[in-house]
Design a binder for these strands. Structure first.
Lengths: 331, 331
DNA sequence: TTGTAGGCGTTATCAT
DNA sequence: ATGATAACGCCTACAA
C-alpha cells in the first residue's frame, strides 16, 4: 500500500484550500455544490480516509466507546453479553464509532480506569450492574458519559434494562393463576441487582393476588450445583407445585438433577426460568421461560450513549419489553 | 474533573522545555537523573496522562489492536473466544495497547475493513480461520500486521494454534490402542480449517497403526441435531466401538440423544470429544476429551502481534500444547 | 463561497 | 543534557 493521502494532498491537487476540502468531507459550513462534488469525487477515486488521530486531536473525540465485560462471568451468561455487544455494534457502526473492550470485576477495574484516564473512549457501556458498583461509582466521578445495561438504585445512572420486574411478576402470576400455590424460587448471586429485581417481581405477583409467600421456599445465593441438588431433594420431599429458577444456569442444573434422579417434569414438579438462553433451547421437556431481546438491549444502550455523548438529552431509564413463553415444563 | 493537564503546562511549571518533559515520560533520549525524577514526581502528583491522540498523530500509531469475532458463531464456541480474548487482554494491557472489537462473517467484513481503512488499529488478531478466508485475504493485501488464531494453508500468514493435529492424533491413537477398531467420527463445518485439521489427526492415528479407516463411519458437516440423531441410531445399529466428536456441541448432542434413548455410555458406546469446553464440565458420565489452554493461545497471539507491530521478527507458526484427559465415557 | 492562520498535544530533528 | 522548532493531519475562528 502506498502512503496514505491527506487533506493537504487533495487541496493541492484540486487547487483549493484544505478548509474547503474539510468542509466537503464534514458537510459543515457553506460550500458550493460544484466544489463539493468535485472534492467528493476525488476522495472517492483516491480512497481518501480522514486520519482519526488528527481528527480526534482537533475535536477532542476518539469515536470509540468502551464496552465493559465482567471478567468473572459464568459461561451461561456469555450469550447474553455476546448478544448485547452485537446490538451495540450495529448502532456504533452506523454512527462511525468503534468498540473498545474492557474487562473488569467489581474490585479490580484498573483496565477500565486506564482506558478512561488515557482518554481512549468518548463513553462507556456497563453490561452488568452490581449492588455496590465500584466501576459505576468510578465512572460517575470521572465525569465520562456512560450508561448501564441493568438496573441500579442510583437514579443518576442512566439505565437500560429489560423489564425484568414486570416480566417476572407476570410469569409468576400466570403460574399462580394455574393454581400452583407452593412455588419455590432459586436464585443466584444476591450482589447482582438483577437477582433482587427478579425476586421483587416474584414477590409482587404474590402481593397482586394477595397470597402469602412461604419464605422457606426462597433460596437465594444458590447457583452452586451441590446446593441445588439438596434444594431439589427438599422440594420433592415437601411436594411443592413448582420451582422458578432465576436464570438458565440454575434451570439447567435443576433439570439435569431431575433427569438423573428420575424425577419427572412436569408430573412430579413444574419448572420455569426467568430467562431463556440458548442452552435451554433444545431441552426436553421444553422449559417455560421469559424471552428478552438482548441484542435490542445493546442497541438501545449504544443509541442512548451516543446521544449522551453528542449532547442530546436522554431518558434516565429505559425498559425494553419481553414475552412469556409457556412450554411443557409447566403443563 | 478539571481540565486535563498537558506536557506544556508541566514544562512551564517546572521551567524546562517540553522536549525534556517528553523525554522523561517516554524514557527515550538522554536526560539527567535529577530532571527526570523532578518531572516524574510532578507528573505523579498532578496525575498527568499523555493524550493518546496527540501521541498517535505524532508517531502514526493508535496503540489499539483489533480482535475479530465471527458473527455467525455457535453458542458452544463462545467460551473459546472469550478465553482467547481474555488472554489477549492480559498481554495488550501490559504493553499499553487496547482492544477494539470487530464482528465479521466470511462474506461481510465491512466492519473490519472500516476499522483498518480508518486506521483505528495498529494490527489485527483473527480468532478463526476459514478454508477460503476472505477477511484474511483482505488483511494481507491491506498490509496491516495481523496474526491468525487457527491454522491456514497460506504459509505467509502468521498462525498461532493449538496443536490440534497432534492432539487429535494422540487421542485417537489411545482409543485404537484400547482395542477399539470400529471408531466413528462426527465433525462440523468442513469450511473451518479446524475441522480438517482434526480430521487429519484422526486419519494419521490410523496410519500410525496401519489400520484402515472405514469411510462409512466418517460424518462431516454434521453439527445439526437432527443429523446427529440419525447418525447415532445408525452407529448403535452397526455396533461401533465408539464415536469421536470433533467439538463439544456435537458431543453434547450425542450424549443428550443417548440419554433420551437409554443408550448407555460407555457400555453401549464410548464417546470422546476433540475439545473440552465448560459445557461438558459437569456431564454425567464425564467425557474423555482434549484440554487446550485457550487463554494462553490468545496471550501468545497478542505477544506475537505486538512484536510484529514493533518490527521484531516473529515465527510464522506457533503451536501451543495440550493434554489428553481420559474419563468415564471411554472406560 | 473560499482561504489564511493558528491550535490540538505529542514526538522528532537539529542545534546549543 | 537541554531547548527551539517543525512536523503529524485535521478543525475552526476569522478574514477576504
Amino acid at each position: 500500500m502506498e502512503d496514505k493521502i491527506t487533506i493537504d494532498d487533495i487541496a493541492r491537487e484540486l487547487g483549493v484550500s484544505k478548509t474547503t476540502v474539510s468542509r466537503a468531507v464534514s458537510g459543515k459550513g457553506r460550500i458550493s455544490d460544484e466544489t463539493r462534488t468535485r472534492v467528493l469525487n476525488y476522495i472517492e477515486a483516491h480512497n481518501y480516509r480522514p486520519n482519526p488521530m488528527a481528527k480526534g486531536l482537533a475535536q477532542k473525540k476518539t469515536y470509540n466507546i468502551a464496552v465493559v465485560w465482567p471478567e468473572d462471568y459464568e459461561a451461561v451468561d456469555l450469550p447474553f453479553f455476546q448478544k448485547c455487544v452485537l446490538g451495540v455494534n450495529k448502532v456504533t457502526t452506523e454512527n462511525g464509532y468503534d468498540i473498545l473492550i474492557s474487562f473488569v470485576d467489581n474490585e479490580k477495574f484498573h483496565n477500565l480506569r486506564r482506558i478512561v484516564e488515557n482518554q481512549k473512549v468518548d463513553g462507556v457501556i456497563l453490561t452488568r450492574t452490581l449492588i455496590n458498583d465500584r466501576p459505576a461509582e468510578y465512572l460517575k466521578v470521572s465525569g465520562i458519559p456512560f450508561v448501564a445495561i441493568g438496573s441500579s438504585d442510583d437514579k443518576e445512572i442512566i439505565q437500560i434494562d429489560n423489564n425484568n420486574f414486570g416480566a417476572c411478576r407476570e410469569l409468576t402470576g400466570i403460574l399462580l393463576s394455574k393454581g400452583m400455590r407452593k412455588l419455590a424460587i432459586i436464585g443466584g448471586d444476591i450482589n447482582h441487582v438483577i437477582t433482587r429485581t427478579r425476586y421483587n417481581g416474584f414477590l409482587q405477583a404474590f402481593e397482586d393476588k394477595e397470597i402469602e409467600v412461604d419464605q422457606s421456599l426462597v433460596f437465594l445465593n444458590s447457583s452452586d450445583p451441590i446446593k441445588i441438588m439438596a434444594i431439589i431433594d427438599e422440594l420433592i420431599r415437601r411436594k411443592v407445585d413448582g420451582v422458578i429458577c432465576m436464570d438458565d444456569a440454575i434451570a439447567g442444573q435443576v433439570i439435569t438433577k431431575c433427569r438423573n434422579e428420575d424425577i419427572r417434569i412436569p408430573d412430579d414438579i413444574r419448572v420455569a426460568s426467568f430467562y431463556n438462553s440458548s442452552i435451554l433451547k433444545n431441552m426436553v421437556p421444553s422449559v417455560t421461560s421469559l424471552n428478552f431481546d438482548d441484542e435490542n438491549l445493546g442497541a438501545v444502550a449504544a443509541r442512548t450513549l451516543i446521544d449522551k455523548i453528542e449532547g442530546k438529552t436522554v431518558k434516565n431509564r429505559i425498559e425494553t419489553s419481553y414475552e412469556v413463553i409457556l412450554k411443557d415444563s409447566t403443563k
